[in-house]
Amino acid sequence: MDFKESKFMYLIAFIVIAFVIGQSLFFLIRAYNHGKKIGLSAKKMKDAITASALFTIAPAVSILATVVVLASSLGTVLPWIRLTVVGNLQYEVTAAQNAMEAFAGSGKAVAFGQDITDPTVFSAVAWVMTLGVILSLVLCPLLLKKIQKKVGKVKLDSGSDNKFGDIITAATFIGLISAFVGTSLAGKASTIEENGVKQATGMGAGVMSLAVLLTSIILVVILQTLCKKFKWDKFEPFVMPISMFAGMGMAMLVYAVLPESISMLEWRPAV
């Protein structure tokens, strides 16, 4: 049996999953109970739960796709563990690639995409992927409270002007969203070396990303306006997830209807 898919590896994965779910449940129940205590209605909190669950499905499936990308070299279980705790889409591929490149010229060299058969290389890759993400967990208990104290002070000092506070909060979120919107409008796909050949990971900005972006934006604007006008309160939690899925559906439609030379056109192809 492949050591990367052994029962022991699955056991580690289940322990990690139990920890992440256990912690999340602890915080969820604690927050829900406190919400009830401070007068937040059960309906509002359930709306937040429903909307968050729906909003998570599509990104979770694309994270799952990253497990598949990494599985060609690392098996399924290690990427599964790494993407369950601390990991993220962009990081894991880069970390695995860097770790494998470290063995270049050692006689155990393996290129991204090739199956790792040497347990020592596999163990080294697991160490690199772990150590690379550990800093944020170390910094959280050290810095988080201090940062919140500083932010709280600014909020208290400027608390007299609520409109200004709302504008700055909105500007902060819009700034964050803009980074991804800018990438969807003009970004170039990143590349990895697979079996010694440079390959693009995902797609850069082009006809497809523009069509998807515009569909999601327009649909949210229309649905939110309708919700406000006709007071569709129950429908509101579904507006963003529906628009997101509609955007993804538009990608499938564009691909099916337009010739590939147009639908897959990227402004700046990576390879």
Binding site: A65, M248, M252
Partner: peptide, 16 residues
């Protein structure tokens, strides 16, 4: 194509 476009779909919905 849909799973290649999760980011524009997600952040387009938020921006809207």
């Amino acid at each position: 194509p849909a799973f290649n476009q999760v980011i524009p779909a997600l952040f387009g919905a938020l921006l809207g």
